[in-house]
Nucleic acid binder design. Sequence first.
DNA 1: CGTTCGGAACGAACGGTGTTCTACCCACGA
DNA 2: TCGTGGGTAGAACACCGTTCGTTCCGAACG
Lengths: 254, 254
Amino acid sequence: MFYPRTVSASNRIERVEHDLPEPPWRTPRKQPARRSLSREAIVEAAMGVLRKEGIDGVSMRRVATELSTGAASLYAHVANKDELVELLFDEVAGEIPLPEPDPARWREQVMQLWVDSRAALLRYRDIARAALGSVPFGPNALRVTETTLQLLRLGGVPEEAAAWSADVVGLYVSASAVEGAMRAQREEGHGQWDDKARQTREFLAALPADRFPVFVSLLPHLMSGTEEERFRFGLELLVSGLAALATGPRGADP
Amino acid sequence: MFYPRTVSASNRIERVEHDLPEPPWRTPRKQPARRSLSREAIVEAAMGVLRKEGIDGVSMRRVATELSTGAASLYAHVANKDELVELLFDEVAGEIPLPEPDPARWREQVMQLWVDSRAALLRYRDIARAALGSVPFGPNALRVTETTLQLLRLGGVPEEAAAWSADVVGLYVSASAVEGAMRAQREEGHGQWDDKARQTREFLAALPADRFPVFVSLLPHLMSGTEEERFRFGLELLVSGLAALATGPRGADP
DNA sequence: CGTTCGGAACGAACGGTGTTCTACCCACGA
DNA sequence: TCGTGGGTAGAACACCGTTCGTTCCGAACG
């Protein structure tokens, strides 16, 4: 009742009526669903825009146009843009595959869950920016957190450490997804990106070795690997740090 | 010459002339610097706005007003808003205190450096959002990265791991600063924040324990600690993961 | 000295944003 | 049948980043 207007019953009925092959029951007149706007339809339209153009493309006017109406009409179903974005984020979180927790494979499973989380975020461009803006307490995001906590407990990670780790890893996954989205966006504009990339490389190559000796000597390593490999490296750092805290390396026994 | 318009010589000369006691060399007329706009002045004004109102308050119009001129005038000294924000970020990075690397205390020093980095970012509200948007290659940011790499190498962290860790930790610090800024902003609007916080607490307390058993049972831990304590916990996870990779636990010997 | 010229300053304008106000319209309950 | 209340939506408000065209000024040149 309070968290949120999840799915209004009237919307459901409307959709069902729309799907049925129109039995002329009680004078269907013209179209029963001429006023078709609903929270679900708005989220669906916004998801399409998000996937195609990223979060900056999702404006109230743009989404409304997609539904061939005006921006003001959306405010009857959504409090404001922030709420819409939160709904979008949770929709994306719903696409993260959840494992069946297995005590013997908790490390592998927790790694996979986080890699999958990042992948789901990246599938919707820079939606991750929304995650850093507001604590994600939507039902789907909660389910991901719940699974994370289950896995960590199965791994014998102390309770407080597990709780805090979920927070830490959420930040890291989101940040990595934001960075990945930025790079992907840059790589889209092929024409000018070659220039920019070349310029950056030249700039780094021209750095004075006397002022940044270690940086310059590590340049090859600083530019090596794919984005996901680097992400996994960070995850392994975190997980190995967690494993060191675990009372029992596997299983829930102390 | 290419990275960027670092500091145009003309600006330097202007400042020097301004500082000198005005030798009437060649008819100084009234005031040689009536046209006082300069890249430095713009950055300075923008930093003031940033500190007071956050990154959203920094608009070209707002900064221009601060200098009692119009927004269009800024574009003679700054390519666009993105460039201005990059300049602001590097200015903030310049406030991060750098340690004198000491092999015996690398762990402690690297932790302190990162805690200080986060603190500097938070001092300027949500400027950290700019760090996630573009790889920070300004001179001051480079100096911070250089110091980080020095410390990790002193700790015996393998070269590739050190390079990748700098990336990872940069993401984590920025993400944590973004979250911290969000919380700080929410806590500013006291009047309505009590409500929002209470609602969130009620919402979490009302979560169905059968659907989110671990989450609910860990609720006390999920809400405990200050933001900085949680940040330090994540850092320790990363550093202990790094220490495990180090060839020599202290000093640079294998 | 006068003139030219190049770059900074800057008002106006363009096309966008989130949100609110205010009518209107129509299906429903009385 | 007649309100009426809530979804719809156009217009408007106050912003935003950026560009255009003009003005203006200081320095260099003839």
